[in-house]
């Protein structure tokens, strides 16, 4: 190992809070400040920077965790060194960390997952979306085999409570809502239309059809899914309503047919 490599590895350990002391890295001290207090500036800055980066991304989690927020972040920082060149990606494992460490309070991981989905949608790749006119041009005989190609970065997150309300309150600076647990798990949709990130809860039937479309099911199968749930007479108007909503939200990227 070169002297430079050794110095950098020892410095890294010292900054991250390890047992490495200043004299081990031959840091110079003087009358202005001793070596350890010089090193402490880097050690302090490391934690503050990571904490600030997480706080920027996880505003919903800050709202839902309240006074526990800082301790959550510190526990994550203590166990998760940053591995990406951009500090903006530091929170990529926070939701999984909360899954494992806070099983009794799943709202924390769910909230972190929604915050992160919003954050990653913000600068995901640009995609074009299908217009109502383009869909209307599809000939009647082609509809049964039609496959909707949804946005690549569209995200569907399971949730057991009203995490979206916490995020909305945090974004708007409004009063923190009360936690409300759902009788059955639901799903949250996160996507970006042009430059604006959106999120909303999905109705159960919409989630089923959207999931099927994401997995490449043809249009006839989407209708069949709704028919099985609502009956034939309700299925088609419901499918039309969903399609209209998806088109206006920019969720549909393009069209394809069965292979």
């Amino acid at each position: 190992m070169s002297a430079l490599q050794q110095l950098q590895q020892q410095m890294l350990q010292a900054v991250m809070g390890g047992a490495t002391q200043a004299h081990m890295i031959e840091v110079r001290g003087d009358v202005v400040a001793d070596a350890q207090s010089r090193l402490d500036i880097y050690r302090h800055g490391y934690r503050v920077r990571l904490r600030d980066a997480l706080a920027n991304e996880f505003v919903g989690l800050q709202s839902i965790a309240g006074r526990r927020f800082r301790a959550l972040l510190d526990a994550y920082i203590d166990t998760h060194p940053s591995e990406h060149y951009n500090i903006r990606w530091y929170g990529s494992r926070l939701a999984t960390f909360l899954d494992n460490t806070h099983r009794q309070t799943p709202q924390l991981a769910e909230m972190a997952r929604l915050d992160w989905a919003i954050s990653t949608a913000f600068d995901a790749a640009n995609e074009t979306h299908l217009s109502a006119g383009e869909l209307a041009a599809v000939p009647p005989h082609a509809w049964a085999d039609l496959r909707l190609s949804l946005l690549r970065d569209l995200q569907v997150l399971p949730c057991t409570c009203n995490v979206d309300a916490f995020r909305r309150a945090a974004d708007n600076g409004s009063e923190r809502p009360h936690l409300r647990r759902y009788a059955a798990p639901r799903h949250m949709l996160v996507w970006r239309l042009d430059t604006q990130v959106h999120y909303r809860r999905l109705e159960e039937d919409e989630w089923q059809v959207l999931s099927a479309a994401q997995h490449g099911a043809p249009f006839a199968q989407l209708c069949a899914t709704l028919a099985a749930r609502h009956g034939e007479t309700v299925a088609l108007p419901r499918m039309v309503a969903l399609l209209q909503a998806w088109l206006s939200a920019g969720l549909v990227h393009g069209l394809g047919t069965a292979a």
Partner: peptide, 22 residues
């Protein structure tokens, strides 16, 4: 400067030793 080593990023502008090796 250097900002990290061993795959870890400190997100800080760390000074180098001013040596011929560096």
């Amino acid at each position: 400067c250097w900002t990290g080593v061993q795959g870890v990023n400190l997100h800080d502008l760390m000074p180098l030793p001013y040596t011929e090796e560096a």
